[in-house]
Simulated assay, not measured.
Amino acid sequence: MLSQPSSFTDVIKSKFLAILFDQLEVRSVAMVTQTMLSLYSYNATTGVVLDVGEKIEVLPVVNGYVVEGGVMRLPLGGQRLCEVMNSYLINRKVRFASNAEFLLARYAVEKLCFVSMDYTDDHEQCLESSQDFKSTVPLLGPLTSDLGRFKSPEGFFNPEIWGVDNDSVQKLVLRSIGQCPIDSRRQMWRNIYLTGGVTMLPNFKERLQLELNRLTPDNVVVQVHASWFRYHSSYVGACVLANLESFQRSCVNREEWMSLGDGCLKKMSGY
């Protein structure tokens, strides 16, 4: 089984299959999108998957089928978060420039950043007394940050802080569910699943729940689910999917590839 980005085209998939069957001589292959695997990791077939990793993707799935009109993507995510955090670290006389050094900025994000539950209040308190928000991580010497700890990830909920004109994650989820069939929307609101490394930031789930409650009527129940294993949800979902009886029927074997060629890609479209 191969976990693939949702941006993979049929041409790219065909090239992968050609390498696997013609060069590596594997017996059968299944290619599944990372976001779908994340949904299976929650043992669910209906819901909205919010994947915040290097990029942002919102994938609505009803009874195992993707609602194509509700798929939302943004090229902003962990990479942008690290860039913003890096700009705050420059004020501390610390600068990560090379690709290798940028991994240190990512480490700083993982250890220092958190999502504010009340950004305006935290911002005012930090300006008055930044000592309460300071935190230090040992990284080539002591590395301290205060305002950048919560202002950097705030861009996911208030994109104007990053200086970009894009929808926030809560509005992406709202738009995505709005494209789903009317009779399934209440179920979709109760089944919002998080995946991706950025969602591991403290308070990310709680803040998203708060923002979505503000966007929905009082009679709509909103539930955001966050597994402890969502950093590796694609792998967990792959294990779940591989144990299903229907999975073997969705695999493409070598004989089908030799006879059908690219036509066998339709067999994997169910996942």
Results as ranks from 00 to 15, higher is better:
208 L>M: 07
214 R>M: 09
200 M>W: 02
177 I>K: 04
177 I>Y: 03
174 L>V: 07
185 R>F: 13
213 N>K: 14
179 Q>K: 15
172 L>V: 06
180 C>F: 08
218 D>V: 12
205 K>I: 05
223 Q>P: 01
195 T>Y: 03
213 N>D: 13
192 I>Y: 02
182 I>E: 10
206 E>T: 09
195 T>N: 01
186 R>P: 02
223 Q>D: 11
170 Q>G: 00
170 Q>H: 11
219 N>D: 15
209 Q>I: 02
193 Y>Q: 03
218 D>W: 14
219 N>Q: 10
222 V>Y: 07
193 Y>F: 15
168 S>M: 01
205 K>N: 11
193 Y>M: 05
166 N>R: 02
190 R>K: 14
219 N>W: 15
171 K>P: 00
217 P>L: 04
193 Y>I: 05
180 C>E: 06
217 P>W: 13
200 M>S: 08
166 N>G: 02
169 V>H: 00
190 R>P: 05
171 K>S: 04
205 K>E: 13
208 L>N: 01
205 K>L: 05
217 P>I: 00
180 C>V: 11
210 L>N: 14
187 Q>D: 13
185 R>S: 14
204 F>H: 07
197 G>M: 00
204 F>C: 08
207 R>A: 11
223 Q>G: 00
197 G>V: 00
216 T>L: 12
221 V>E: 14
183 D>S: 03
198 V>H: 01
219 N>Y: 15
201 L>T: 08
209 Q>P: 01
174 L>N: 11
176 S>G: 06
182 I>P: 00
214 R>F: 12
191 N>Y: 01
213 N>F: 12
173 V>F: 03
214 R>A: 11
215 L>K: 11
222 V>I: 05
206 E>A: 12
184 S>R: 15
211 E>I: 08
221 V>L: 09
171 K>Y: 08
205 K>Q: 13
209 Q>A: 14
188 M>Q: 07
200 M>T: 10
190 R>H: 11
187 Q>T: 12
198 V>Y: 07
190 R>C: 12
174 L>C: 04
173 V>R: 03
166 N>T: 02
183 D>Y: 04
221 V>W: 02
181 P>G: 06
196 G>C: 00
184 S>G: 01
198 V>C: 03
218 D>T: 13
215 L>F: 06
176 S>P: 00
188 M>R: 10
202 P>D: 14
178 G>Y: 04
219 N>A: 04
197 G>H: 01
191 N>L: 09
202 P>F: 05
178 G>S: 14
220 V>W: 07
174 L>T: 09
204 F>W: 08
206 E>C: 01
208 L>E: 06
172 L>H: 00
185 R>C: 07
171 K>L: 06
210 L>K: 14
204 F>R: 07
219 N>K: 09
193 Y>E: 10
211 E>P: 08
205 K>R: 09
202 P>H: 13
221 V>F: 00
